[in-house]
Amino acid sequence: MELLPLFQWFEATFIGTKVRESLWMFPVIECVHLLALALLGGTILAVDLRRLGLGLKEQNAADLNRQLHPWMSGSVAMLILTGIPMFLSEAVKCYYSPPFWYKMGLLAVAYTFTLRRRAESRPAAVVSLGLWFSVAFAGRWIAFY
């Protein structure tokens, strides 16, 4: 299936056009995206480091996870909410950008892994950290390639 027409349509949507034609919208949305990234990074680190026996080790791992979960899903929601208008504004560029496709693939895996996992094991913590940091890394590289 040819996806390019779909991405061209994305770019022509009302939001895509508005964000692209505005001087300040993209940077402002990007700032919120970055603030949410910092918070997500912090919560994921705190939870996964605990699973590795580091950081807040006096706390019960499951309890820590439960307490930070609203902050984690809140920042993921904010990241998606701000990510969509940025994507719409340059959908065709994203279509041709390898880091964009890596990011979306990794994001799907990281998201599923974080929500579905039952294992509290150390390898699971390492995989989670690796996945989320790869998502952020690939995201930054959309700007370069």
Binding site: L34, L37, A38, L39, L40, G41, G42, T43, I44, L45, A46, L56, Q59, D63, L64, Q67, L68, W71, F133, A136, F137, R140, W141
Partner: peptide, 30 residues
């Protein structure tokens, strides 16, 4: 540049957890 951006989680994100605890918003039992 990406190292600088990714370290946001390691630095600002962790600082934010302490700040959110101080304002009484997160990790209230810790």
């Amino acid at each position: 540049e990406s190292t600088h951006v990714l370290t946001l989680g390691l630095f600002a994100g962790i600082i934010a957890l302490l700040d959110l605890r101080l304002v009484g918003a997160a990790l209230r039992t810790v």
